[in-house]
């Protein structure tokens, strides 16, 4: 296993920013690390890339505890933080050359390496431009090129897509997929699920320092429980209470909201269970003029889980 964390916990004073996070990541996969602001993504990532020590727990890179061999771990990790730090008056080429130095990249063949990385992140034409004058998207890509200088096996990217326009986002996606296909393991954080859902092999969902779900995008919705909203439109005003009491008897039913002549029912059961409920309404002679069932998108499920947890 390329990366594995075991019961990572991080406390800032009395505030528990990360609570027993155990997760893993393999070569040749992209894992999305998703959670709202303050979920503990950055904290977890900084611990993984050796920039912080957990209060308890351990990170394993290629099954080696990083606390035992930090310098070895750093050879395997490439980190793109959620900010872009740079020295004044420096060209992209000088920027990459300096970090190649700090990462012990041999002098021989370095020019070619820098050229190929700039080509990979589509910045070949900005080789001699001042880094401070690059656009945000270009800076993000340059930062990615920097993280790739020592050809790390594991890439950790903290919100690389934030503030990018759809086209830049698509470009970033293409680059990451290409890197994944080379066999690198990639961990990428975001607070928006759809941003990652389509191209991540797996996702880890975090909320308030706790892992809410982990797995393939498809299996996540199962883990979170399939949720749907069923809307019943009744005809008779006096039948609402009866209908509600019928719904209440069903264990799959969650919240019930009445809006004029409709009842919006949160439902966690499968199709059979919902047809069973409709039959009961019919048997009780409750007049229903219209029924509609909408499944929640993964994003809605995610927001709901986090929302419920949050309050």
């Amino acid at each position: 296993m390329l990366l594995r964390t075991e019961e990572l916990t991080k406390c800032y004073g009395t505030h528990r920013a990360l609570n027993s996070l155990s997760m893993s990541l393999d070569n040749g996969t992209i894992t999305g690390f998703i959670g709202p602001n303050g979920a503990g993504k950055t904290t977890a990532m900084r611990i993984m890339v050796t920039l912080m020590r957990p209060t308890s727990g351990e990170v394993y890179i290629n099954d080696e505890a990083i606390s035992k061999s930090v310098m070895d771990a750093r050879k395997i990790i490439g980190f793109v933080p959620d900010y872009f730090g740079v020295y004044a008056a420096m060209s992209s080429e000088e920027y990459l050359d300096f970090y190649a130095d700090t990462n012990n990249v041999p002098k021989a063949g370095r020019d070619e390496l820098i050229d190929s990385l700039l080509a990979l992140v589509k910045l070949s034409d900005k080789k001699y431009s001042d880094v401070n004058q690059l656009s945000r998207g270009m800076k993000q890509r340059l930062c990615l090129a920097r993280a790739l200088l020592h050809n790390p096996q594991l890439l950790v990217l903290d919100e690389p897509a934030s503030g990018l326009d759809p086209q830049s986002r698509a470009e970033l996606k293409t680059i990451l997929v290409a890197l994944r296909n080379e066999g690198k393991g990639i961990l990428i954080s975001s607070h928006i699920l759809p941003e990652l859902g389509e191209f991540c092999d797996r996702v880890v969902i975090m909320n308030k320092g706790v892992k809410v779900a982990e797995g393939s995008v498809d299996s996540i919705s199962e883990q979170l429980g399939e949720k749907a909203k069923i809307t019943y439109t009744l005809i008779d005003d006096s039948q609402f209470d009866d209908a509600v009491s019928i719904f209440r008897m069903n264990p799959h039913v969650g919240e019930i909201i009445r809006d004029k002549m409709t009842l919006e029912v949160e439902f966690k059961g499968d199709d059979l269970a919902s047809s069973e409920m409709l039959k009961r309404l019919m048997l009780s002679d409750i007049k229903v003029s219209e029924v509609s069932k909408t499944r929640l998108s993964l994003e809605q499920v995610f927001l709901e889980v986090i929302g419920n947890d949050g309050n």
Partner: peptide, 14 residues
């Protein structure tokens, strides 16, 4: 202040 410290620390420079 330039936020470059982390980049140095997680590089291969001890």
């Amino acid at each position: 202040q330039r936020q470059t410290m982390d980049l140095l620390v997680c590089s291969q420079m001890s």
